[in-house]
């Protein structure tokens, strides 16, 4: 049985807050920590070194809250590039309250993104796609001299997605939405506007966890 502990964001949470909440949710489920333990409770300020946004993570025995801004009663403050939440090697520096090493390690574990191999994520993505869009997707991966080619589905419209494995990993691991990668030139998606929109919506829903 998975460890179901709510990770709460405000109603008007930003995409960054929601992404952070998703990462924490995944890690909580993965590590199943006991938040009843006092050394795992407290308020953390995440100070962004690159954007005007700071975020507070409050760890309670029964829930975790992600909120915009900082709080004066924070147990620790970490600074780092919040805008680079896509980066699996994201690192934060401890700004003050250095005397909570265990808590700091715990928090860093909670906000660390551990990306799955893209093929694993892609399988999950395509299962989700086939439930909602009637398309026949082919994926061409170009990286490090490799050029593997994958095909999924047997729908009415052929779709060819061609990209580096890095961009695909972001897409399939719920880090980005299709149309953004297409517009940035990272992914080439040969399909109708309709299918691109529907696939983008699916990736957006996965990123935000629905409405």
């Amino acid at each position: 049985m998975s460890y179901l502990i709510p990770v709460v964001t405000s109603a008007d949470a930003t995409p960054l807050e929601m992404k952070l909440a998703r990462v924490i949710r995944d890690n909580l489920a993965k590590y199943q920590p006991d938040l009843q333990r006092r050394q795992h409770q407290g308020v953390v300020n995440l100070i962004s070194s690159t954007t005007p946004f700071n975020v507070t993570i409050s760890l309670f025995p029964d829930k975790v809250m992600v909120r915009r801004g900082t709080q004066d009663n924070a147990k620790i403050s970490l600074s780092g590039d919040l805008a680079a939440m896509d980066n699996p090697n994201l690192s934060f520096k401890q700004k003050r309250h250095w005397h909570h090493p265990r808590f700091t390690r715990f928090v860093q574990q909670l906000i660390r993104q551990e990306l799955r191999p893209w093929r694993v994520a892609a399988e999950e993505f395509f299962e989700c796609v086939h439930e909602q869009v009637d398309v026949d997707i082919s994926v061409k991966v170009k990286s490090k001299g490799e050029d593997p080619y994958f095909e999924w589905g047997s729908g009415s419209e052929p779709v060819l997605i061609s990209s580096s494995s890095k961009a695909l990993q972001r897409l399939f691991d719920k880090q980005s939405i299709l149309i953004e990668e297409v517009v940035r030139g990272n992914i080439h998606c040969h399909s109708s506007i309709r299918t691109t929109a529907l696939l983008s919506e699916l990736t957006l829903n996965r990123l935000l966890g629905g409405l």
């Binding site: 506007i193 309709r194 929109a197 529907l198 983008s200």
Partner: peptide, 9 residues
Amino acid sequence: HFTFWHTFR
């Protein structure tokens, strides 16, 4: 609107 669809489009 690239991330959602309507049948009139």
